[in-house]
């Protein structure tokens, strides 16, 4: 059986991880490579690195970081943050990333998805969508959730898949940071209406939340940051729990 995937997400600024400073057993908690090695040794199925650097210098540092990660990590990893052209994607894949996630730039210019998929293959193009429930339903938000659009989230994700996205990374802005659980209904709607895998993100607080998003939300993968970074949930324990609940995981 194809296993449900558990994906820790690391925010990287100027080549260093931000958040999650109280790791135990790491020489240097700010070193993304060391943290990534820890997670992959514990059984993370994939990793996501989001570059939140604001400067060109920070971006360059990120590219060389991606090369280091590719040398040392033996599971697949996705990179995102600030990707706006096919050249950006080429640079990051060339440095050794397995997939690139695009968000704001794809909304501004949907043909970016098409050209990226044509140049690099759909399997390495992840469409990241930040969705927020408004009075008009689920809408797409940009710039890390700060800017509203009038795009319907479900329609946008369907269109993204038609244009060539090979995977969807769906973050619920309502759930993000609450630790009250993933957004189940929206995740299920998307997962049932597109033909590519869906990664659910935002709201993970407990092991039960992961079970829910896999069983009821029909997610193919679940992404979380702080519950892993702060040691509130240990990946091996989470996976054993999911297995006991009858969910296929890689142990």
């Amino acid at each position: 059986m194809l296993a449900k995937r558990i994906i820790p997400c690391l925010d990287v600024k100027d080549g260093r991880t931000v958040k999650g400073t109280n790791f135990i057993g790491l020489r240097d908690a700010g070193d993304p490579v060391e943290l990534a090695e820890k997670y992959s040794a514990e059984g993370a199925d994939e990793l996501v690195f989001l570059d939140i650097s604001a400067t060109n210098e920070g971006r360059k540092t990120f590219t060389s970081l991606v090369s280091d990660i590719a040398r040392r990590i033996n599971v697949p990893f996705t990179v995102g943050g600030g990707i706006s052209t096919p050249d950006d994607i080429g640079r990051l894949l060339g440095a050794g990333a397995d997939k690139a996630s695009i968000n704001t730039a794809a909304v501004r210019d949907p043909s970016l998805i098409e050209s990226a998929a044509r140049n690099f293959g759909s399997q390495c193009i992840v469409l990241a969508v930040d969705a927020k429930l408004t009075d008009d339903g689920w809408r797409v938000f940009l710039n890390g959730g700060r800017m509203a659009t009038d795009l319907d989230a479900i329609e946008w994700m369907r269109r993204g898949v038609e244009l060539g996205a090979g995977e969807i990374l769906l973050t619920s802005m309502n759930a993000d940071g609450t630790k009250d659980g993933f957004e189940i209904e929206l995740t299920r709607s998307i997962s049932e209406s597109v033909t590519v895998p869906v990664i659910a993100s935002g709201g993970a607080g407990s092991r039960d939340d992961f079970a829910e998003v896999f069983v009821r939300g029909k997610a193919d993968a679940a992404l979380a940051a702080s519950v892993f970074h702060y040691g509130e949930i240990q990946i091996p324990e989470l996976k054993r729990f999911l297995q006991m609940r009858g969910i296929e995981v890689r142990l």
């Binding site: 059986m1 194809l2 296993a3 995937r5 199925d45 599971v75 697949p76 759909s122 399997q123 090979g166 995977e167 033909t195 590519v196 895998p197 193919d220 993968a221 890689r250």
Partner: peptide
């Protein structure tokens, strides 16, 4: 869903590439 993406189990293993493996290992 297509592509088949993620970790799945391999079974009925034979031959030298799988020396030392038990059935049901997960690969990507």
């Amino acid at each position: 869903k297509v592509p088949h993406m993620g970790w799945n189990q391999v079974t009925d293993l034979r031959g030298p590439l799988f020396d030392g493996f038990a059935d049901g290992e997960f690969v990507y």
